[in-house]
Simulated scan of single mutants.
Amino acid sequence: MSAAAGPGASRPNVKTEMMSPATTTSTTRWNTQNIGLRLGADAASAATAGALVAPVITAIDKAIIENASGRQTLGRSLRDSLATFTLRPHHFLFSKPFALIFALYGGTYITANILDTCSSTVKGQPATTTTSGPAKFLATSSANLSLCLYKDSRFAKLLGAATASARPIPGPSYALFAVRDCLTVFASFNVPPLIAPLLPLSQGMQAHVSAASAAQFIAPAAVQLISTPLHLLGLDLYNRDGTLGARERMAKVRMDWIKSSFARMARIVPAFGVGGVVNTGVRKKLMQRLEQ
């Protein structure tokens, strides 16, 4: 009998049969540990970040709209907000403008947090796991855009021209506000990776800030020079009736363009920089405690 016909040749390969794809089963389990507390941590992180950035953004947005409507100059409105926040903080913190800004950014942050928690739960990953990619971008962008449109409509009613308070917000104003926000979101998420390799940072500067970090602040701030005129035109369409010609409206936009652009640049840093860092950091610490 040949070696191929020996006892070893007729024995079935048990190891191969056991490892066959047909006999394997998935062992991935959902990570539902402390899921209620984890959702609470998502909300607490978002609320902390939202409360931190809301005072500055409220004062700036209020000043831009009051300046556009002619109620107050931009500088005077900022000084009034600072005085109210310093001397009567409860009046500032319980005002409608503050509540609208808090809801806008708190809602944006909590959308991102809950998406991270859902992803880590389904994939069986640690609670501290965060995600990135199209799903998170679409979710946070949709939340931010819808909440921002609502905020803009309420701000225009509260702080716009007194003669326009009875009029509804015109459709073109909503369209202009939406394009403005799309430009900011695009500049915040899509442009930085493209311009980071092109930034001429010296080695000394790179020791303190990376090109990616610099681009993350530069891109959304720079786009305000383009998006602010859209914002001002949308406000003017509401503040002044539709009988005005394009020339008169463009004159008003040009008059307020530069100072309003720099004001909107100032709000980008807390909105898309500080707030995001605080939200992520607080959430990570809370999730680490829950994992212990």
Rank of each mutant, 00 (worst) to 15 (best):
residue 213 S to Y: 08
residue 178 A to E: 03
residue 275 G to A: 12
residue 75 G to E: 11
residue 262 F to E: 03
residue 217 F to P: 01
residue 231 H to M: 08
residue 150 Y to F: 14
residue 159 L to Y: 01
residue 88 R to H: 15
residue 286 L to P: 03
residue 246 A to T: 15
residue 226 I to V: 15
residue 198 L to V: 11
residue 268 I to S: 02
residue 147 L to W: 01
residue 268 I to L: 06
residue 21 P to C: 08
residue 138 L to G: 02
residue 248 E to H: 11
residue 203 Q to N: 15
residue 240 R to L: 12
residue 125 Q to H: 15
residue 205 M to S: 15
residue 119 S to H: 14
residue 96 K to Q: 14
residue 194 L to P: 00
residue 115 L to K: 07
residue 196 A to D: 05
residue 43 A to Q: 10
residue 53 V to C: 03
residue 105 Y to P: 02
residue 180 R to N: 09
residue 229 P to T: 07
residue 140 T to C: 12
residue 53 V to D: 00
residue 280 T to L: 08
residue 267 R to E: 10
residue 88 R to T: 14
residue 124 G to A: 10
residue 118 C to D: 11
residue 70 G to A: 08
residue 235 L to C: 05
residue 151 K to L: 12
residue 167 R to W: 03
residue 45 S to T: 07
residue 66 E to Q: 14
residue 63 A to F: 01
residue 27 T to C: 13
residue 17 E to V: 14
residue 199 L to Q: 06
residue 36 G to T: 08
residue 62 K to F: 11
residue 57 I to S: 01
residue 142 S to Y: 12
residue 270 P to L: 11
residue 276 G to S: 09
residue 148 C to R: 04
residue 263 A to F: 04
residue 218 I to A: 10
residue 266 A to Q: 04
residue 25 T to A: 14
residue 234 G to L: 00
residue 128 T to I: 12
residue 47 A to Y: 10
residue 202 S to W: 09
residue 267 R to A: 12
residue 33 Q to V: 09
residue 144 N to Y: 10
residue 45 S to K: 06
residue 161 A to Y: 06
residue 245 G to F: 06
residue 67 N to C: 03
residue 84 T to P: 06
residue 91 H to E: 15
residue 39 L to T: 00
residue 4 A to Q: 14
residue 44 A to Y: 05
residue 74 L to M: 12
residue 251 A to G: 08
residue 125 Q to D: 13
residue 259 K to A: 12
residue 282 V to C: 02
residue 105 Y to N: 03
residue 260 S to G: 10
residue 234 G to V: 00
residue 129 T to N: 11
residue 147 L to E: 02
residue 177 F to G: 00
residue 68 A to W: 00
residue 257 W to K: 04
residue 19 M to W: 13
residue 146 S to L: 13
residue 76 R to F: 09
residue 60 I to G: 01
residue 131 T to D: 11
residue 85 F to C: 07
residue 201 L to D: 02
residue 286 L to W: 01
residue 124 G to H: 10
residue 178 A to G: 09
residue 231 H to C: 05
residue 9 A to E: 11
residue 233 L to F: 04
residue 177 F to M: 09
residue 168 P to G: 10
residue 16 T to I: 14
residue 280 T to M: 07
residue 221 A to C: 13
residue 92 F to Q: 07
residue 220 P to C: 10
residue 154 R to T: 13
residue 250 M to E: 04
residue 111 T to H: 00
residue 120 S to V: 05
residue 218 I to M: 10
residue 151 K to H: 05
residue 191 V to F: 03
residue 117 T to V: 09
residue 187 A to Y: 02
residue 249 R to I: 03
residue 215 A to P: 00
residue 264 R to D: 04
residue 263 A to Y: 01
residue 225 L to S: 07
residue 95 S to Q: 09
residue 159 L to V: 02
residue 76 R to E: 14
residue 284 K to A: 12
residue 279 N to P: 06
residue 288 Q to W: 08
residue 183 L to T: 04
residue 45 S to M: 08
residue 143 A to M: 12
residue 73 T to C: 06
residue 152 D to M: 08
residue 252 K to S: 13
residue 263 A to M: 07
residue 255 M to L: 15
residue 196 A to P: 04
residue 254 R to Q: 13
residue 241 D to R: 14
residue 110 I to W: 00
residue 210 S to W: 06
